[in-house]
Design a protein around this nucleic acid. Structure first.
Lengths: 133, 133
DNA sequence: AAAAAAGTGATAATTATTACTCTTTTTTGA
DNA sequence: TCAAAAAAGAGTAATAATTATCACTTTTTT
């Protein structure tokens, strides 16, 4: 995997965010600085970086592909109103990680994906309707 | 919600399957019997039936939308090689349901989605490559 | 039976993602 | 160092799943 300005920019942008952005989110944030960057480049780099284990591709019940620069094990919550994805602090969730791993093993599975759902703070306040899911 | 031949056919077809089919799966199975049925009709009926709580729309980390005629609470496994989705027998998983509900509540979430992943029996046997995911 | 509401089939439109072609940049090794 | 080879980028076309539209038919209501 070669080095390139674009790859560094994608990686740094992702790491600077806690929003679990899509390829297009990153594309839009990079454009002001790199007006010539192509959306395909962003997709390709996110794909390669996650294949290399440098970033994480999220497995959410979302038709949009989201990425995370934080490789530490943690759960996510998705807002069922606006679709925003945020981290769940993982204190006191060790038992849950264990139960899930055990359940997977017992059923011949090697892994699992969990996502918590609910209405996020923003949506609860601004009662305005947002992009439904 | 009115009655129609097509709606009944979609519902019965879904209920006869344990494969968690997509709209297109159902469309293809219905065509021999109902050659004039339209794919849009299948999509619309699956959507309405799940909105009415008669069937369940699955929340999987899959860009294909899948449906389940079985409303009882249970987990799913998705084959990471061929993408097939199957049920996980829920005996001895009560503790897990409880842990998940508690974790959700503790973090201000109202629900959760879980999916287990692994290579299914078919793919382990037929070592032939299938539609990767 | 007439009117209203809901559903259908056919097809167009949308949206996220991937593929492709050609150009540019980066790496490699004589 | 510097040319050839390899990898990456830009721009755009193609794909695939899903949703929307619309004229017409079926079902339900009155």
């Amino acid at each position: 995997m070669n080095r390139s300005m674009q790859r560094d920019a994608v990686l740094n942008e992702l790491r600077s965010l806690r929003t679990h952005p899509t390829a297009e989110d990153i594309y839009n944030r990079l454009r002001p600085r790199m007006p010539k960057i192509s959306i395909g480049t962003v997709y390709r780099n996110l794909e390669q970086l996650s294949a290399a284990g440098i970033i994480r591709k999220l497995e959410l019940s979302d038709r949009l592909r989201r990425f995370d620069g934080d490789l530490s094990p943690h759960f996510h919550r998705r807002c069922c109103s606006c679709g925003a994805v945020s981290d769940i602090p993982s204190e006191r969730l060790d038992a849950l990680f264990g139960e899930l791993a055990a359940a997977a093993a017992r059923n011949g599975c090697s892994g699992y994906n969990v996502e918590f759902t609910g209405v996020c703070g923003d949506c609860r306040n601004n009662k305005k309707t947002q992009n439904e899911e």
